[in-house]
Nucleic acid binder design. Structure first.
Length: 239
DNA sequence: AACGCAATCAACCGCCTCAAA
DNA sequence: ATTTGAGGCGGTTGATTGCGT
């Protein structure tokens, strides 16, 4: 049975590759069949740990070493977790991506059972778009609303250490203050280990007041209330 | 039912690093 | 010091699937 399959596999489509990993040797390419999966699985179970360069021969597969490795690493390995990503996993991916960039294998290392390929695909098809939407929202011109600000900008960080409140003033922020706010809130979010990056991304808009509502510095410091506002607002934005 | 478009994801490609010869 | 082969990575492609018209 396997022999007949192998014979048919040889007729599979081929094309040369620059690194000679498959095409130049006439190795089969494209979707893996159930029979190929079975052969590879049997080989790994029997010989593991084994050099990937030896796998095609040991398994009786007309596939290149890379194709075998990829199939195992991304699909056949029994430790791979199937099914959709949980909210926690999603959140972790977003955080790690912010920290590591497109280092998919490193990110995958922090999510047991998830492959780098899965995470990359998930990011590209789901999360990158969401990030884009968030960025678009942030870039959306928001007319500054009158807000109650501390006259001393450094107070916000000091207050967390128990400093007394400075004098407050209600005003429409100018461009420079606008930037200061953005920096300050980003900093504040980072220092406070925000519950999620999404919250951090929305913090700025909330500080400025969304939909004509006015927010004060005190409101910013009351995270519970702020976060629920953010969630309500972001939910309505997603619709 | 048929078509077109968008989303998804498995698989490939090309490059890089590293160790052994 | 150089070459070569293996392992691994991120980017990209293309087949498949789902959905709207």
């Amino acid at each position: 049975m396997f022999q007949t399959f192998i014979a048919s596999a040889i007729t599979g489509s081929t094309s040369p590759t620059r690194d000679g990993s498959s095409g130049s040797t006439g190795a089969r390419k494209g979707q893996w069949s159930k029979e190929e999966d079975t052969l590879l699985r049997k080989c790994i179970n029997q010989y593991s740990p084994v050099k990937w360069s030896r796998v095609p021969k040991l398994a009786g597969l007309n596939r290149c070493r890379k194709s075998c490795r990829l199939r195992w690493v991304n699909y056949l390995d029994p430790s791979i977790k199937r099914g959709s990503f949980s909210e926690d996993e999603e959140d972790l991916i977003i955080r790690l991506h912010k920290l590591l960039g497109n280092r998919w294998s490193l990110i995958a290392g922090r999510l047991p059972g998830r492959t780098a390929n899965d995470i990359k695909n998930y990011w590209n098809s789901h999360l990158s778009k969401r990030k884009l939407n968030v960025e678009r929202r942030i870039l959306k011109p928001i007319r500054p609303q009158p807000v109650t600000l501390p006259q001393n900008w450094s107070w916000l960080t000091m207050k967390k250490q128990g400093e007394a409140e400075p004098k407050m003033e209600t005003k429409v922020p100018d461009e420079e203050e606008h930037d200061q706010w953005l920096m300050m809130i980003n900093d504040y979010n980072l220092n406070d280990q925000m519950a999620s990056n999404q919250h951090a991304d929305f913090g700025f808009e909330c500080a400025y007041g969304v939909g004509g509502e006015e927010s004060t510095v005190d409101a910013i410091l009351q995270w519970d209330g702020l976060l629920s506002d953010i969630r309500l607002w972001s939910d309505s934005e997603v619709e």
